[in-house]
């Protein structure tokens, strides 16, 4: 039986029918056509599908869509405006932290959840914050640098 849920997605109110066995990743990609969020392993092990629910990074491949009833959900599409990238996105580009790019939306969402909670993280905290995001290309060094730099830019601008 399909059920109706309401939630906020990237600042916009959603009112939509979902199937009981549907995962959040399928709702986001198949029904809402937001393809920034990626599917890698579909079992919680790669982090490519990471989104933020009520301030917390989670694997959207393991979250039943019905669980977001009444929640605030953020995906990679919610970060930038048509004219301006989010400091994390800008910093990833400037630091050459993106290669094939498949893991990047998930990694950036993990980084955003971290910076929203800890605006000035240590290197160890950054490593811990993105430990659930596997990148097969970059070797993480530039990703870590990009996150630390973005943190600085964000705190300087407040």
């Amino acid at each position: 039986m399909k059920r109706r849920i309401t939630f906020i997605l990237n600042g916009e109110k959603m009112d939509i029918e979902v199937s009981p066995g549907q995962m959040l990743i399928s709702l986001i990609k198949d029904d809402l056509h937001l393809h920034g969020t990626k599917k890698g392993c579909a079992r919680g092990e790669c982090g490519a599908c990471t989104v933020i629910i009520d301030g917390k990074a989670v694997n959207s491949c393991l979250i039943p869509a019905l669980k977001v009833q009444g929640s605030i959900v953020e995906t990679i599409e919610g970060l930038s405006t048509p004219t301006r990238l989010h400091p994390l996105q800008q910093s990833f580009i400037e630091n050459g932290a993106v290669q094939c790019g498949y893991c990047i939306p998930g990694t950036i969402m993990s980084a955003k959840a971290l910076l929203d909670k800890k605006p000035c993280p240590t290197v160890a905290e950054v490593k811990m914050g993105i430990a659930g995001n596997i990148c097969r290309c970059t070797g993480y060094v530039k990703i870590e640098k990009a996150i630390l730099e973005a943190a600085q830019i964000i705190s300087n601008s407040i």
Binding site: N59, A131, G132
Partner: peptide
Amino acid sequence: VGSVQIRNA
């Protein structure tokens, strides 16, 4: 346990 994402759930 697991990762941040796993621990949050």
